[in-house]
């Protein structure tokens, strides 16, 4: 697992992909930060909630290569015939993507420190926000990893992941069409990633949400391993 993690993490920065992701996130969060900073509020929660869409943009780019490229270049033959368990391979790649993601959103820590020079922020609120962003990222990355395992093409993997994300956004739109007491609303609302994520930015720490994101990550990583294992029987 360590070897795969190291290789994948490095691969992000031997190609422009890693830098592109860093740039995208730094650029947008930077704009929002400078606007908020002028307003004089020490609370970055507003930035965190707008980052929802930026994260949705970068995740497909982050995960598209992971398994699809191995399949195309046949390097999966090396990984799958090495004395390594399949879950380690999946986890190694997943953690590499997650590490790059953590590095990217780590800029938020820098913003908060900058703010702290002027006004004392509520670090607990920040921590909740940051944790929410990481959990949200974890879940989406696992979805991206799964989609990447389904195809040989990076483009298809990225688009596939993006489509899943669009569906996740649509869930909220469709939920709005039902009355708040109806069953479809309740189901869709339960599925709403947006609500679950923004709940962190309101300063609430709901363990159900933590558990939701962790479960989604687990389920999709499990499915990824399953898909790769099944492929051997194809």
């Amino acid at each position: 697992m360590g070897a795969i993690f190291k290789r994948e993490f490095k691969a992000y920065f031997t190609s422009p992909v890693g830098f592109a992701i860093l740039f995208l996130f730094f650029f947008f969060s930077g704009i929002f930060f400078s606007v908020y900073f002028r307003s004089g509020s020490p609370d970055l929660s507003g930035i965190f909630s707008t980052m929802f869409y930026i994260v949705m943009m970068i995740i497909p780019v982050l995960t598209m290569r992971l398994f699809s490229e191995d399949k195309r270049q046949k390097t999966d033959q090396l990984l799958l015939t090495a004395p390594v368990k399949l879950p380690s391979i999946v986890l190694g790649k997943y953690l590499a993507a997650l590490a790059v993601f953590a590095l990217t959103v780590g800029i938020m820590v820098v913003y908060q420190i900058v703010v702290a020079f002027f006004i004392a922020p509520d670090w607990l609120v920040f921590l909740g926000n940051f944790l929410g962003l990481l959990l949200f990222g974890m879940a989406l990355i696992s979805v991206g990893v799964f989609v990447s395992a389904l195809t040989e093409s990076q483009v298809v993997a990225a688009l596939g992941c993006f489509v899943v994300e669009l569906v996740l956004i649509l869930v909220d739109v469709i939920a709005g069409m039902f009355s708040t007491m109806s069953l479809p609303y309740k189901v869709l609302n339960w599925l709403s990633v947006y609500n679950r994520y923004t709940s962190f930015t309101y300063g609430t720490m709901d363990y159900a949400n933590v558990f939701f994101f962790l479960s989604v990550s687990f389920v999709f990583l499990f499915l990824t391993a399953l898909v790769i294992d099944r492929r051997r029987y194809a």
Binding site: T75, D76, L78
Partner: peptide, 10 residues
Amino acid sequence: PEQPPLFLDM
């Protein structure tokens, strides 16, 4: 394997 499993970026 038939096609050497090489990572071209390394």
